[in-house]
Design a protein around this nucleic acid. Structure first.
Length: 313
DNA sequence: ATCCGGTACA
DNA sequence: TGTACTGGAT
């Protein structure tokens, strides 16, 4: 019998019936104080816009890789108005090898909306945030919590995995968050706004560095004593996600990355990549042309009449 | 070789 | 509801 089941009580218990929630709040709070990584956008050192930029960059990349990009980026474009005024070519170049460059484009679109419609002042409401380009539920919630200190459940895969293991004793499934998972996240959230922010951050951090998907470091876990997943013998640890397998070699993703990388690496003074150099990047002409067309569709490159390509101005 | 994830959109 | 989108870590 798993001890910390997600039992809903009829009486008004402190956390909607999530057994041990308060104990976990205290444990993870202490763990956070001692173990939080000193990332430059944490501990009130970044503006709300800076927090948003860090969240967008972190959506797809480990924090440690994000740090130098974020630092350079914020030095170059400290606020939304500055980013709004940059050329798209500069933005794509600065995005460098962070991956998913369409997000750089969306971040700049977001900056333009914030600069124009919000007078360069990032909106403070979830509904207004989620309406911005490239901002979905996770990022809107993260900004509400981490930048504005509001009490709101932040739900990403790390948090889903940790809460599911700790309180339910099972692995969270792939795909989008279920209503039950959202419900659990809301019931486990501390009542107090300030503590809810720490909770969101510490659960996410725990998932990133201790309660990892494949090989969790349970010996080093601050909540191991009451973890339902550990008590149950870690059933289905690291089991196959419902997400399809993602390979990279030979895919359109690789080809697109190659083309953008060549454009970013153009020598000073050169602004376009001639057709011959483009063709030298990839042997399969059909796939190459398909990828060039899709990059053009996405607004990541422009095709010139002579077959050369360049970053948008 | 295999792992990873939020957003937009079909 | 499922899929495309990248590139570094392991």
């Amino acid at each position: 019998m798993v001890r910390s089941v997600n039992a809903v009580n009829n009486d008004d218990t402190a956390n909607g019936g999530v057994t041990d929630a308060e104990w976990a709040h205290a444990r993870l709070g202490a763990w956070w104080e001692a173990n939080a990584r000193d990332l430059p956008w944490r501990f009130g050192r970044a503006t709300p816009w800076g927090v948003l930029v860090s969240e967008v960059m972190s959506q797809q990349t480990q924090m440690s890789r994000v740090v130098p990009y974020w630092t350079d980026w914020m030095r170059m474009w400290p606020d939304a108005a500055a980013l709004a005024g940059a050329s798209t070519a500069e933005v794509i170049t600065a995005w460098g090898r962070l991956g998913y460059p369409r997000r750089a484009l969306r971040l700049q679109e977001c900056a333009r909306v914030v600069a124009d419609r919000w007078h360069d002042d990032l909106p403070r409401g979830y509904d207004d945030l989620i309406a911005l380009p490239g901002i979905g539920d996770y990022t809107a919630s993260a900004v509400m919590s981490f930048a504005y200190g509001e009490r709101i459940a932040v739900i990403d895969t790390n948090i889903r995995r940790v809460l599911s293991r700790l309180f339910l004793g099972v692995e969270s499934r792939g795909g989008s968050a279920s209503p039950a998972e959202r419900d659990l996240a809301n019931r486990a959230l501390p009542r107090d706004a300030r503590r809810s922010v720490t909770w969101n951050q510490s659960v996410m951090e725990l998932g990133a560095v201790v309660c990892t998907a494949k090989t969790p470091l349970c010996d080093a876990c601050p909540v191991r004593d009451r973890c339902a997943f550990l008590a149950a013998g870690r059933p289905g640890l690291g089991e196959r996600r419902t997400r399809p397998r993602q390979r990279f070699a030979g895919t359109d993703r690789q080809v697109r990355g190659l083309v953008l990388d060549a454009l970013r690496g153009l020598p000073d003074g050169e602004t376009s990549l001639p057709r011959a150099q483009l063709e030298a990047l990839w042997a399969d002409r059909v796939q190459l042309d398909k990828c060039v067309a899709s990059l053009d569709d996405d607004g990541l490159i422009e095709m010139l009449p002579d077959g050369a390509v360049r970053l948008p101005r």
